[in-house]
């Protein structure tokens, strides 16, 4: 994972609540065995017309003025539904570096953090303000500071957002969590010595 200290970029809004992972990346694209190419399928069923090919001009991600956006502002409870990590892979593939919402589904949030896609939780008013700003002026940019855990709004207001210390450490240093777990070998072995294995699948 690359280090992520700051995200600066223009915003695009999808002001829809409860955007589920089937919308972010429909299941028929999950037959891949790698992570490549999923960006093209992000929001596929909203992005393309019924023929599956022609871009839907009404959908905000197809509008020319939003092509540079790297921060997605979404409705409440973003990423609910399945555990597919293809959802953050697709969003990253589509050029997003952060998603702003009032709430994220637990598994999506975990998955996003493990891939360097920053989930930024803000209050309802900030979310609504960002929706309006994005619609009024597509060049609106925000700056998100991981170390400080702040989102800087265009008017200079700074909004704090929560981020657990460990995820923050991993983002700032570009390390993944597995290294930490593998270093616990002695503790895991001690646990296994004290707790008999519950089932043996190979038996």
């Amino acid at each position: 994972m690359e280090k992520l200290r700051e995200v600066q970029g223009s915003i695009v809004a999808i002001p829809v609540n409860d955007i589920d992972t089937d919308q972010i990346i429909p299941a028929r694209f999950l037959k891949v065995t790698d992570k490549a190419g999923l960006g093209k399928a992000a929001f596929c069923d909203w992005r393309y017309l019924d023929d599956g090919k022609s871009p839907n001009p009404e959908f905000v991600l197809n509008q020319p003025e939003y092509q540079a956006a790297s921060v997605l502002v979404a409705g409440n409870n973003f990423g609910c539904g399945s555990s597919r990590e293809h959802a953050p892979w697709a969003l990253l593939g589509a050029g997003f570096k952060a998603v702003i919402s009032t709430e994220f589904a637990d598994i999506f949030r975990n998955n996003a953090l493990k891939n360097g896609l920053l989930p930024v939780i803000v209050d309802h008013d900030t979310q609504q303000q960002l929706f309006s700003l994005a619609q009024e002026d597509p060049s609106t940019t925000v700056a998100i500071d991981v170390e400080e855990q702040t989102l800087s709004m265009p008017d200079g207001r700074r909004v704090d957002f929560p981020l657990d210390g460990f995820s923050k450490y991993c983002l700032l240093n570009g390390v993944d969590q597995l290294g930490y777990l593998l270093a616990l070998e002695d503790e895991v072995s001690a646990f296994e010595a004290e707790n008999p294995q519950r089932v043996v699948t190979t038996a």
């Binding site: 555990s83 597919r84 990590e85 975990n110 998955n111 493990k114 993944d176 597995l178 777990l181």
Partner: peptide
């Protein structure tokens, strides 16, 4: 349920 990164964590570390 867990994501694919975590599937990797559990495969490798059982934690």
């Amino acid at each position: 349920g867990i994501g694919t990164s975590e599937v990797g964590h559990v495969l490798a570390s059982q934690t």
